[in-house]
Structures are given as C-alpha cells and as structure tokens.
Design a protein around this nucleic acid. Structure first.
Length: 305
DNA sequence: ATAGGTCAAGCGAGG
DNA sequence: CCTCGCTTGACCTAT
C-alpha cells in the first residue's frame, strides 16, 4: 500500500544535461544582470516539463519540486524578469501535464525556513521563500491542500522548545492562505528539537496542519514513541481523502559501515523494508541516488512479490 | 577537461 | 572555533 516518489533531481536525465537546478552566483547577477536569472529559470522550467514526462513514462506519480528552479526567486521573485511570460507559460504547461498524468507534486523549502526564529529578518526571508513556492504551485494549478504540500521543519528550539513553538504559531498567521493551506511540518532529526509528539502538541493542535513523518529522523528524536506509534500519530493529523506523505531514508553511516560519516547523512540507495503498518502512504525516498534508487528499490519490491 | 575552492540562506552537534 | 548535515549541489576559476 505504498507509492514511491523521489526528490528534485532526476539523475537519469541529468546525465543528458536536463536539470531544474541550474543557478547563478550573486556575482554573476551583478555582472550579467537579471536577464541572466531569467534565462536560467526558463531553462529550468522547460526541463521540469521533461522530468514530468519522464515520471509519467516511468509510472512515477510522486515528485518533489526543487526550490532552486528560480534562482534568487525567494528574494527577488520572477514576475519582473524579461522572460516572465515564458516562465509562467511553461509552469502552466507543467500543471496541465501533472493533471493529465495524475502526479502528486510537493515541495520542501530549505533549512533556512525558520518560522520560530527570534530574528525578524529570518522570518521575513522565510515568508518570502514560502510565498514563492505557493505562487509557483498556484501557477501550476495545484490544489491548495496538503495533497500538494509545502513541507518545512520547525528546525530549531533556541534553547526553549515551548516558546519557540509559540513564536512559530504566531508567525504562521502571517502567511497567505495559499501557504497556510498547503503547509506541513516534519519531525526534526536532533534530540533538542521537535519530535512527532512535540509537533502534535505544540503545532498541530494550534493551527491544524498535518505532520509529515520521517522514519530516519525519528531515530534521533523519538519523543518516547515507537516508530509505529509516531507514524500513526502523524497520519492521524491528515485530512480525510488525502493520502499522508512520509519521508524514508537510510543512514549512509550504516550503508558504508563508516562511523566517521554523520549518522544523519543519507545513503545512496535503500534496502528497506519500509514498514507502513498496513497504512496507505505516499513515500518520498530521500536518497542521494534519487530516481535511480527508486527504480532499483521498486524492482526489488516487484521481484519479491 | 577536470578538479577543487567557493557560494545565498540558519541552526545545532560533533570534533 | 570550524565543519558538516539538512532542503537540494552547482558555479567558476585555475590548472
């Protein structure tokens, strides 16, 4: 009862030069102007279309959109770029393909998105980043529900988890409806941060958004729950009719038997098994080998049937 | 052509 | 105090 997806980068196509992750340094923008950003963004969005076609042709219906698709988009936006109308056109085209091929698209803005930060600048950057993701999803006509989740962490506790959560909830209210209706929150991978229990008590009960369960992170912050208990608590926060999404990865340290590697680092491939405890889940595989790891694991699953 | 240093954003853990 | 890891490595310059 699990459906598999992969994040942001398609290595099968990257080897052919197809990517949504081209970017440009600030120095490059100063040298070549914002037109250069537009060029790169347009190439990225046109290649997104090719990746979506590849997903369709390979029977993959869960995919995470890269946050790098518009270089500097989180700071500068994209509607002012000379290529804006073409960029928008291609996003709309991607949206049509997504609908036709029944793909579920999600996104996971970076670890700099911190709604609990005591710094107003950090909050403002976070809001701008989240709003850009929502704007792109709107252009692709993706639902304003957690089916198309914009997923982040609380990501820090600033020495006081309870007051950090309060700050988070206060700042959540500054987000637009497009962000709030899609936002999900994921358990952290550090003991000082937020477990599924913490998120349930301090975030979900306050603002109602669903919890994304990450199997790997759970090992570093259990909140006193077993894997099954934590998964089921997270799943209980999802609205009726929307398949909950979870994240699955394995430790690079264990795969390579190298204790020098940090335990949180992700492996290239996964062995499984992924225990869904009988639940229907959309599983995002967070591996370094992306689509290649998905194809390999799916083959293994099919052969074991 | 490729390797290695550098780069836009925040935080905490580990050495 | 520096580096790594996370979301998600890619750019750029020097060899």
């Amino acid at each position: 009862m699990i459906n598999l997806g992969y994040p942001c980068i398609n290595l099968s196509l990257k080897s052919k030069g197809i990517s949504t992750n081209r970017t440009i340094r600030l120095a490059g923008v100063k040298k070549h102007g914002e037109e250069a950003i537009g060029q790169i963004a347009l190439c990225n969005v046109m290649d997104l279309y090719k990746i979506l076609e590849w997903n369709r042709d390979n029977g993959i219906t869960l995919f995470r959109l890269s946050s790098d698709i518009i270089p500097w988009g989180n700071k500068l936006g994209f509607r002012h770029l000379p290529q804006a109308s073409d960029i928008i056109y291609w996003f709309e085209l991607c949206g049509k393909l997504i609908k036709e091929s029944n793909q579920r698209i999600t996104t996971h803005p970076g670890p700099f998105n911190l709604l609990a930060s005591p710094k107003e600048d950090v909050i403002r950057n976070t809001i701008a980043d989240l709003e850009m993701h929502s704007e792109i999803f709107d252009l692709m006509n993706l639902s304003r529900t957690p089916y198309n989740k914009i997923n982040i962490h609380v990501g820090a506790s600033y020495g006081d988890k309870i007051s950090a959560a309060k700050t988070w909830v206060t700042n959540f209210k500054r987000l637009s409806e497009g962000v709030r209706s899609r936002l999900t929150i994921e358990n952290d991978d550090k003991a000082s941060m937020f477990s599924v229990v913490d998120l349930h008590e301090m975030i979900h009960t306050e603002v109602g958004i669903p919890i994304v369960f990450d199997y790997h992170h759970h090992q570093f912050q259990t909140g006193g729950l077993s894997e099954e208990e934590a998964l089921k608590l997270a799943v209980s926060t999802w609205p009726e009719g929307i398949v909950p999404t979870v994240h699955y990865s394995e430790s690079k340290r264990l795969h390579e038997n190298d204790m020098k590697v940090r335990a949180q680092a992700h492996s290239d491939f996964i062995n499984g098994p992924i225990n869904s405890y009988g639940l229907r889940l959309d599983v995002m595989l967070e591996t370094k080998q992306k689509d290649l790891a998905l194809l390999k694991f799916r083959k293994k699953l099919n052969e074991s049937l």
